[in-house]
Amino acid sequence: MPHSVQGSPLLGIDEPTLIAYFAALNDERYEEVAALFAEEGVLYPPFEEPVIGRGAIAHYLHLEAAGMRAEPRKGELLAQEGTERCYRLVGKAKLPLFSVNVAWQFGLNTENQITFVKVDLLATLEELFNYQPLRQQR
Rank of each mutant, 00 (worst) to 15 (best):
G107S: 07
A70P: 01
L25A: 13
E81H: 13
Y44A: 06
V100S: 12
M68C: 11
E76L: 10
Q113F: 02
R69M: 08
G67E: 05
P133T: 11
R85K: 15
R54C: 01
V5D: 00
R88P: 01
A70W: 09
S8M: 11
A56N: 13
E48D: 12
P50K: 02
E39I: 08
L43N: 04
L77M: 07
N101S: 14
L77V: 07
V117W: 00
S4K: 14
A56D: 06
T17E: 04
L95T: 09
K74S: 14
R69K: 13
E49N: 10
L63V: 10
D14L: 08
R88G: 05
L18M: 05
N112P: 00
L78R: 10
A123F: 05
A38I: 02
Y44L: 15
D120E: 14
Y131V: 11
Q80W: 11
R73V: 10
G82P: 06
P45I: 06
V119P: 00
G55F: 08
E15W: 04
R69C: 08
M68T: 11
A93H: 04
L125F: 07
Y60P: 02
R73H: 12
N26T: 06
A20H: 10
G41M: 03
A24Y: 10
Y60T: 04
Y131F: 15
E84Q: 10
C86N: 09
Y87W: 15
L121W: 09
E39Y: 04
L61Q: 03
L18F: 03
R135D: 12
T17I: 05
A24P: 00
G75W: 01
N112G: 02
F98G: 06
G75E: 04
S8C: 08
T124F: 04
G107T: 04
L89D: 00
F106N: 02
L78T: 05
